[in-house]
Design a protein around this nucleic acid. Structure first.
Lengths: 212, 212, 212, 212
DNA sequence: CATGAATGAGGTTTCATTCAT
DNA sequence: TATGAATGAAACCTCATTCAT
């Protein structure tokens, strides 16, 4: 599957009947299951439909092609993570900078780790489906929320500029991915989380002038 | 392509004759060219052979299967990066910590960016070929070199522990990937490089300071 | 779609209510629209129903299968042409032979050209639906009318035999089709019409003994 | 199959080995066999390959898609007919007009009727494969040859113009098709041939006489 | 050793038709 | 009666891999 325009990935029809809604959810769930059990390479539309307990035809009534299916699943996951970050930002306005960073990073790590297997599996399909574009788009949401939060920090003279936020987000996101793909023992998750906080915080501090 | 054992990815025969070496190099180069021009999805063995100016049969004389071909190309690339890091470490022994970090990070970024398009393209094939395992293995080399270098730092009471190095490498590697996939304007590359140095350095300082 | 017996192509129910008639007409019209806009290959029952503003289920209430739908549309078109020819024959009884030929051929050409796009499109579906058989049947009507007309010609000793009429009709019909499929510039339509008259007339004259 | 550009119908590779030439011929022949035995609607690439005694993959090594296969077969047939017409024209230069028409028409009819079943079957696939365009192209050849021949006619003051030749060809071609599709008893073939000669001849005479 | 023709399993997608609501 | 979700056979086409020449 080549990476093409994002447009053609839109779902084909919005289900109106209750039955249809159930079907769509089944397909979505089945996609993840197949991804986990067989890997991206063995993920076929037939297999997904089978797992979802519907026929292939039904699958294609809701998704115009395989890409759109993967796209939807990935998008959904990224949106959940973005929402978690947004929520954390919302709740941490007007708090000290270090608390801000801590809450955001922890929310991010927790969102990713809550279903580490899924997060990991989704990395596999990303390249087939315009992953980077999607990641970028979801990243915008998170970064916007982080920016808004940082502007309310009481202990910084001037809030970090856009580049610094981009950088921090890239570090947060990229490091997380690297750790997931390389493998973390569950015992180390906590330590990793603390250190990712530390990493982001020290960078932010370094880049931000403190109020005296 | 499922991720299987690494063993079967080894090239089939080690070329001894000059002609054979030339053929192998052609194929290797052709693989990258096809990857760049057609994408991972359209990368076929026939296409690679065509581009390399040999027949498919010949390709299969040097690589037992498609995976081994991709594996070799990816491995080669990762090794080049690891070598660059090692070289930087070698040359920065007994220098101040900040200079160490600076040199390593810059060497890493420069190695990746020297052929950004290739680095980016290779991310696409990684999942098909046991990428994470390969990345991990190449990472070991870099981290070992970094560790050795850090132990010669004159200005730290105790050198950073293994975890801290893992963390820094994950940050370096992951952030780089994120930036490559998200897209950097050439104008920003320099700034990104500086900030990645800053990010790693401030983390290292923070983590080193903890143990006075 | 295989060519099967003509029987199964009959519409499923004859609409008695006004609403039903309207529905049937919509479907019929929609079929032509889809044929024109998407081509025979992309003509699906769902698409037709959509265009007609009804559900597929409804479509299948009036036509037992896709063939019967196409059959009905084609038959209808051929009947219109046959009617035009019959009318022309009716109005040209007892006129000179040349006038007879002129009127019939012109009526035929005009009927086909009035919706040249539709005529052309229908040629596409003919093979799927027993087109030749239908053409033959509609042809009988025309030929019968032509024969009756010719028998009233005052200036022929003996009217042309059945074979000659078959031949003329084949020429008229086949040449028309060839011209439609090959493409005529609108500017040439008039000239074509004149020449088709001439062609048919000179053949008829050649084949018919004149009254002295 | 929609009618698309003619370009993509070109065969994929020209066979160099003897084995390959044999394969290509087998496929070509099998296409006609399947067309005759199962009809255009039941003509699948798998079925053709099966009949040819090769695998589908092999078929697709020589034809990029189904259309190109049908296109090649149709084109070949039309070219044979065009060649027959050209040959007849060649041999009838400087003969009286009536003999010219006779020879051309008879050559055309004989070419079509020599494998009436194939000619008929090919009409079915024409719409799927840009038939009209192909017919037009093959027609050009025939018409060019006819024109050249007519210019050598000793008994016409001025040779018929291009339009007249177009018209005659359309009549010849279209009438033939109509007769093939409608069905002729073998007994009537001779009579039909004579009458098609008469039809074309009397039209040509009529149209030539017009310009004294 | 190289070649490239052949293989065929398997993947994606379409669409006529049915039937529970 | 109308609806439209569901069906699933079947079509087209790709591509890693083999092996006779």
């Amino acid at each position: 599957m080549p990476t093409s325009t994002l447009n053609s990935f839109e779902p084909r029809k919005t289900p109106v009947q209750a039955r249809a809604t159930f079907t769509v959810d089944s397909i979505s769930e089945a996609t993840i299951q197949v991804l986990l059990s067989r890997g991206a390479e063995r993920l076929t539309t037939t297999r997904v439909a089978e797992r979802a307990g519907v026929s292939v035809g039904t699958l294609y009534q809701y998704y115009p092609n395989k890409q759109s299916l993967l796209f939807a699943v990935l998008e959904n996951n990224l949106n959940q993570v973005a929402s978690a970050v947004e929520a954390a930002c919302e709740q941490t306005r007007h708090k000290p900078l270090s608390e801000m960073i801590k809450n955001v990073v922890e929310a991010f790590v927790d969102a990713k780790m809550s279903r580490a297997d899924i997060s990991l599996a989704l990395y596999q399909i990303a390249p087939d489906v315009g992953g980077p574009a999607l990641v970028k788009k979801a990243g915008q949401r998170s970064k916007k929320a982080i920016k808004a939060m940082l502007e309310t920090a009481p202990d910084t003279e001037s809030p970090p500029d856009k580049f610094a936020i981009d950088m921090m987000f890239a570090a947060m996101s990229g490091t997380m991915r690297h750790i997931l793909e390389t493998g973390v023992s569950p015992a180390m998750v906590r330590k990793f989380r603390e250190n990712l906080v530390l990493l982001c915080e020290s960078y932010m501090v370094a880049v931000t002038a403190r109020r005296p």
